[in-house]
């Protein structure tokens, strides 16, 4: 069902865990009851560290892992540009019907960035859909 890359990120997810006193925390879910929580450590407008926890199918877990890899070390502006398609593409494709499982990673990332902005007294950015 899943390609090798997806299986690798699923079996050995990168950046699993929580960050104590994270600078930004974001959470997103879908109607299945799937859930992702993301923790950002931010320094000089850059994502210095990122951790996640996900409840969901293999596609959801692999997307979470890939998304965190993709935003790590990026500026917040760069990270904001993360798209579902980019995550799916980096995973070399997801099976039909599993594309939406990457949505939670993008949403959680956006929410974590906004959480950080709020804490900084900045206006939250408008989430894309």
């Amino acid at each position: 069902v899943y390609n090798k890359k997806v299986m690798d990120h699923f079996m050995n997810p990168r950046n699993v865990g929580e960050i104590e006193n994270a600078d930004g925390i974001g959470e997103a879910g879908n109607p299945h009851g799937d859930q992702m929580k993301i923790f950002l450590k931010i320094r000089d407008n850059r994502i210095e560290d990122v951790k996640f926890k996900t409840f969901g199918c293999a596609a959801a877990i692999a997307s979470s892992s890939m998304a965190t890899e993709m935003i790590k070390g990026k500026t917040l502006e760069e990270a904001w540009e993360l798209t579902d398609e980019a995550v799916a593409e980096a995973l070399e494709g997801l099976p039909p019907g599993k594309l939406e499982c990457s949505v939670v990673s993008r949403e959680a990332t956006h929410r974590a960035i906004n959480d950080y902005r709020k804490k900084q007294g900045l206006e939250p950015l408008e989430e894309k859909t």
């Binding site: 079996m11 409840f55 199918c57 877990i61």
Partner: peptide, 14 residues
């Protein structure tokens, strides 16, 4: 509890 079944199934398959 706290686990999603498809993931469990696939990890067991592995």
């Amino acid at each position: 509890e706290y686990i999603e079944g498809e993931s469990l199934l696939l990890m067991l398959d592995q």
